[in-house]
Design a protein around this nucleic acid. Structure first.
Lengths: 341, 341
DNA sequence: CTGAAAGCGCTTACAG
DNA sequence: CTGAAAGCGCTTACAG
């Protein structure tokens, strides 16, 4: 394994020699296919010797022979976003139950992850993909991914998908604010080009229209998914001549910026500014007051992603699509509109 | 790769046949060892045909032949702790530069990760390990890990390590509080049995002793590394008959609980309670006021871990040990002691 | 400059 | 119940 020092490791041949049986016999014992084919005594003996010698089957050889690994790549745009960690956690547990290992591939900002994934894929070392809020690279042949990938929080023609009911979640958030009397509702939008965020934007606009409210361009501010960028964008909103009484944030991460901007101006949340987030992870609990937010069932999402993927491995039917509904969790960051407007 | 449908994939033999050359030639071209051994025209031709057929070398076969993978496992106790995500990010970038892939192994609460790691290791599918705040399982033969693993934020006999100057960091935090006049400094401790936290505890105690302050058992509260547990523990501290004027938290995650407990009592941070954390990730910026905390250079840590590991692969010398110093970042959560005591 | 062949360590019919 | 042997797809001396 390690360069430099070739401490050749123990193989089934070594064990066989020492146990005085054939290599096939050792192999059968370790593959769990020995019952009825190898006598119990022989099995015992083989296991004992193997243990003694510290033998462990080489999975690389096994994979080459069998033609499939047991590795699923979990592809996300950014490891430092806690949302993905939470989904991964669910995925990993479920995968482990089915004897699969999940590896994390973080694409980062560079679009170059295509290379990584293409390689991994076509290189036969990865069996399936969970694409979490990332799309396949544009120039990729989708046929190669078919029934080997499930896309989460996105959709893609030809791939199984697990989408979130972003529309429903956004509606719940907006209606909650409207119900509290807010009419000047701003949108702190994620400046990321994926469908999940475009849906929030569209629904935000539709909800305003449904209430007969005008959509004002200056009420939408865009920010990258980090607190610093969110703060800058939120500042712009709060410094408007007629500032919003509530902000709908595309992600809890962005809500951090809204809290900070409010604090800078000495505004009290929620009395002078109501804030709604999207996600409901650690951040929502960390903020004070705790954040009213659209909860995404992350662990369940990860679990389901693996289940769908494994099902896809078995049958080559149509891609499977599933929508997961979202609930608004009302906490301390929203209240009835006051005299701020 | 995928069960069910054996869409046999294209191999070097297929390419060779179509290109009218031998399989060896194709192999040499793709291994980048063709120059001077295969004519440029032939190379061109092979590449063209391969491209046309969608050929991609099978890395599993390559690994079996070569005897080493290019996979490093990054082992952490909990994916949902943002600290690890940050370290991983640094590790991943560096590994990629050296053509290694990092996979994430999260051990979870169960100690059963030993099985996972042992398997992975002895199974020849993983080349090296970064153990991040986890120790090798007790019953593991360390020889097998030697020069294949680097341990971060921990130490272990026989393994290269990257430790943090926890003592220095804790001293800086305590001295900062003492300098502000605090004498009743509580310790919100992580209830996790790893050296990094034991060091904080010891240093906390030593610093008190150095100032001639008595160590009061009730001033130390233990909590699991999540906000809910931290809140419970922090409550205990604040409800003491003589509550602390400052709390030193073993981790930023625990500081969340301290903020919450203070908020419950209507105490203002830092005026009525100073709080110091440990970590300095997203959480420190999310809390309001922003958290004074001991900063751990996560990205640099991840980067260095990979570098040390790769160096270990090359030479079989003594394990390498390195200590990374920590800086206190003073922010808004600490101030001079008031009349609260 | 090019090819035939051995071998990495397994799994699995096939024959006894 | 057990073994000899082919083959997964590469890499790399070795021979020409």
């Amino acid at each position: 394994m390690v360069r430099g020092k070739e401490s050749r490791s123990i193989t089934s041949v070594d064990v066989a020699r020492k146990a005085g049986v054939s290599q096939s016999t050792v192999s059968l014992v370790f593959a769990g296919k020995a019952s009825g084919r190898v006598s119990p005594q022989t099995q015992q003996e083989v296991l004992r010797i193997a243990e003694e010698m510290g033998y462990r089957p080489n999975t690389v050889a096994r994979t080459l022979r069998l033609g499939h690994t047991n590795i699923i790549a979990f592809v996300i745009p950014d490891v430092s976003n806690p949302f993905f960690a939470a989904v991964l956690k669910g995925a990993e547990q479920t995968a482990r139950l089915h004897d699969y290992t999940v590896i994390l591939v973080s694409t980062g900002e560079d679009q170059e992850w295509q290379r990584v994934v293409m390689d991994a894929l076509t290189t036969h070392s990865i069996e399936g993909f969970v694409l979490c809020a990332v799309r396949p690279p544009g120039d990729m042949d989708i046929a190669i991914l078919r029934s080997r990938a499930v896309i989460v929080d996105e959709t893609w023609t030809g791939l199984s998908s697990l989408s979130l009911d972003i529309v429903g979640g956004t509606q719940a958030a907006m209606r909650h604010l409207f119900g509290l009397g807010h009419r000047q509702v701003a949108h702190l939008a994620a400046d990321v080009d994926v469908e999940t965020f475009r849906q929030r934007q569209r629904t935000y606009e539709q909800e305003l229209a449904l209430r007969g409210l005008v959509l004002e361009a200056r009420y939408t501010a865009r920010a990258a998914l980090n607190p610093a960028s969110a703060l800058q964008a939120a500042r712009k909103l709060l410094h408007l001549s007629e500032p919003p009484t509530a902000i709908f944030c595309d992600d809890d991460l962005l809500a951090i910026g809204a809290y900070k901007a409010a604090a800078e101006l000495g505004w009290e949340v929620p009395r002078q500014l109501s804030i709604v987030g999207f996600g409901d992870g650690l951040i929502a609990q960390t903020l004070a007051p705790e954040l009213t937010t659209v909860a995404i069932p992350t662990a369940a999402l990860g679990k389901r992603a693996i289940e769908v993927l494994l099902a896809d491995f078995e049958v080559l039917e149509q891609p499977h699509s599933e929508v997961i509904s979202l609930e608004l969790r009302v906490r301390g960051s929203t209240t009835a509109v006051a005299g701020n407007a």
